[in-house]
């Protein structure tokens, strides 16, 4: 990695050497970093989790490499979900932006960020979403973005609505945007959901609460940003994402 002065911004721009920057091992995660595979409150987990203990796999070249899909997949308007149709979708126009880091705080450039979401009424454009809320002919709800050299991504979209689901009586999902990150290695792959601050459904949602550590739940909640709100246009939410970073695994453990 070399630091160069960015003449446009006057700031320091980080330039990576992709090979030199590739760790040979990644940090193991604490046990409660992610939700337990079998979580009572979320009923569908019961038949969809392994019952046998996971087998510890030392990281190999297979896990520390990964696909670089960004350029293959990106199309025009992929990061603006409000201009993908003839007309404008209905709802609160928002900018969702943030940075992708590893656990050492180093920005991850060139990684593919994919999102999908319900429309402002809480309805997904999907064959199996049948609840009686309207579809919006001007909203598909899917977007893609590749992080820049500082790990930044930005989407323009519509704030999704909450919606009911069949998990238990009067179950509603808090408003959320699904996020998928490829990272730079198979081991960094992450699928998560971004929530909005102060959502009244938080205490009742087993998927949100499946993350047992309160600080972990906080890491899934975006931050309202008046500073990044565009006057007379869109309000803004900031959501930084952390993927696994380099580990301290002794070399002998790898193979």
């Amino acid at each position: 990695m070399t630091d160069q002065l960015d003449t446009e911004t006057g700031g320091v721009r980080v330039i990576y050497d992709p090979i030199a920057e590739t760790p040979t091992s990644y940090r193991r995660e604490p046990e409660d970093a992610h939700p337990p595979p079998n979580y009572e409150g979320y009923k569908s987990t019961a038949l969809r989790h392994p019952k046998q203990p996971l087998i510890y796999l030392p990281q190999t070249v297979t896990e520390i490499t990964g696909p670089q899909l960004g350029p293959v997949l990106m199309g025009e308007n992929d990061n603006d979900l409000t201009v993908q149709h003839e007309g404008e979708p209905i709802g609160e126009r928002i900018v969702v932006f943030g940075r992708v880091f590893d656990t050492e705080g180093k920005p991850l450039r060139g990684t593919l960020v994919e999102i999908w979401q319900a429309n402002s009424a809480g309805r997904y454009k999907h064959r199996w979403d049948r609840w009686p809320a309207p579809l919006d002919p001007n909203f598909t709800g899917a977007g893609r973005c590749i992080t820049d050299d500082e790990g930044r991504y930005t989407f323009t979209t519509i704030k999704p609505g909450p919606y009911p689901w069949g998990n238990h009586y009067n179950a509603w999902r808090p408003a959320h945007i699904h996020f998928s990150l490829l990272g730079r290695a198979f081991i960094q792959r992450l699928v998560t959901q971004m929530y909005f601050p102060g959502d009244p459904f938080f205490p009742y949602d087993p998927i949100f609460n499946s993350v047992r550590d309160p600080k972990g739940r906080e890491r899934m909640i975006s931050r309202f940003s008046i500073h990044d709100t565009v006057p007379n246009w869109a309000h803004a939410y900031e959501f930084d994402i952390y993927l696994r970073g380099p580990g301290r695994t002794p070399f002998e453990e790898a193979f």
């Binding site: 656990t103 998928s180 959901q193 998927i207 993350v211």
Partner: peptide, 17 residues
């Protein structure tokens, strides 16, 4: 050292994106 963002389910509607 920062902690990773927790994982959540891909849900039933991932085929949109």
């Amino acid at each position: 050292i920062f902690e990773t963002t927790p994982s959540q389910t891909v849900g039933p509607y991932f085929a949109i994106g």
